[in-house]
Simulated assay, not measured.
Amino acid sequence: MSAENPQDPTEIRCKEESKGGLKFDVIIADPATSPPKRPSSPKDKDLTAEEIEEKLKAAEERRLSLEAKKMAQIAAKLSKIEEASKNKDEQMSEFIAQTKEALEQKMESHIEKREAYLTDVKAKLKDHLVGVEKSRQILEQQTEEVRNAVEEKLKSAAAQRDENIKKMLERLKEHEKRAELVRQNKERLSTQPQEEITSSA
């Protein structure tokens, strides 16, 4: 960066040396060559020491005035550069603050969404576990009912079997009794004709 004035030989150069730092080079041009001296009039040869001192004093004042003017111009240019640098720093600080705020908001939103997701997952898992527990209880109840029904049927079947066996035994006994009666009748009938023959003789 450089600032020049066609009427001012002074030059200020500014460049960024490193991040966040600026370097200023102030170049003051060589003084302009003095205009050619006019031929001294006869009066100049007769200047007194006091007049010469006044002229030197006036020349010194002009020189000091020019230097003061140059320094004021340099100070104004430096002030503009410093103001530009300050504005740049302020813009950078504002950008950093806005970026930080946006990032924090994004992180907060992400955390809120993550917490909401975890809460939803926990609720669904809890509902699932409740459903599983209910299904387990229903299955246990049904299993118990089936077991009781099977045991009841087995008991009923055993009782029916015992009853059938008892009836079969009773029938066998009845059959044996009848068979015994038939046998006895046959024996009696078989012996009766012999007795009749004997008695008739």
Score class of each variant (00 low, 15 high):
Asp30Thr: 06
Pro36Ser: 09
Gln7Leu: 14
Pro36Ile: 14
Asp30Lys: 14
Pro35Phe: 10
Pro35Met: 07
Asp8Met: 08
Pro6Glu: 11
Glu16His: 04
Glu11Cys: 05
Ile28Ala: 00
Pro9Val: 03
Ala32Val: 04
Gly21Lys: 15
Ala29Trp: 00
Asp8Ser: 11
Val26Thr: 10
Lys37Leu: 09
Glu4Tyr: 10
Ala32Phe: 01
Lys23Tyr: 05
Pro35Leu: 13
Val26Gln: 00
Ile28Asn: 02
Ser34Pro: 13
Pro9Asn: 10
Ile28Tyr: 01
Gly20Ser: 06
Thr10Gln: 05
Gly20Lys: 02
Asp8Glu: 13
Glu17Ser: 07
Ile27Cys: 06
Cys14Asp: 01
Asp30Gly: 09
Pro9His: 08
Glu11Val: 15
Ile28Asp: 08
Asp25Thr: 07
Lys23Cys: 00
Asn5Arg: 15
Pro9Asp: 14
Glu4Asn: 10
Cys14Val: 14
Lys15Pro: 01
Lys19Phe: 12
Ala29Arg: 13
Asp25Cys: 00
Gln7Lys: 15
Thr10Ala: 08
Glu11Lys: 11
Pro36Thr: 15
Lys23Gln: 02
Cys14Glu: 04
Lys15Ile: 07
Asn5Asp: 13
Phe24Cys: 09
Thr10Glu: 00
Pro36Lys: 15
Ile12Asn: 03
Lys37Asp: 05
Gly21Ala: 14
Val26Ala: 02
Pro9Trp: 03
Ile12Pro: 06
Pro36Met: 07
Leu22Thr: 05
Asp30His: 07
Arg13Asn: 08
Ala32Ile: 06
Glu4Val: 15
Thr33Tyr: 01
Glu11Asp: 07
Pro31Val: 07
Lys19Ala: 07
Cys14Phe: 11
Lys15Trp: 09
Phe24Thr: 06
Pro6Arg: 15
Ile12Cys: 02
Ile27Phe: 03
Leu22Ile: 12
Ile12Val: 12
Lys19Trp: 06
Lys23Met: 01
Lys23Glu: 03
Phe24Ala: 07
Thr10Asp: 04
Asp30Ser: 12
Pro6Cys: 06
Pro31Tyr: 02
Leu22Tyr: 08
Pro35Glu: 13
Ile27Thr: 11
Lys15Phe: 12
Ser18Arg: 11
Gln7Phe: 10
Ala32Thr: 08
Asn5His: 15
Glu11His: 10
Pro35Asp: 10
Ile12Lys: 02
Lys19Glu: 12
Glu11Arg: 14
Thr10Met: 04
Val26Ile: 15
Lys15Thr: 10
Glu4Cys: 10
Ser18Gln: 11
Gln7Ala: 13
Ile12Thr: 05
Arg13Ser: 04
Lys23Ala: 08
Leu22Cys: 05
Ile27His: 11
Ile28Ser: 06
Glu16Met: 09
Lys23Gly: 01
Val26Phe: 05
Phe24Arg: 05
Pro31Gln: 10
Gln7Asn: 12
Ile28Gly: 02
Thr33Gln: 13
Gly21Tyr: 10
Thr33Trp: 00
Pro9Thr: 08
Lys23Leu: 04
Ile27Pro: 02
Asp25Arg: 00
Lys19Met: 11
Pro9Glu: 06
Arg13Ile: 03
Asp8Tyr: 08
Gly21Asp: 11
Phe24Val: 12
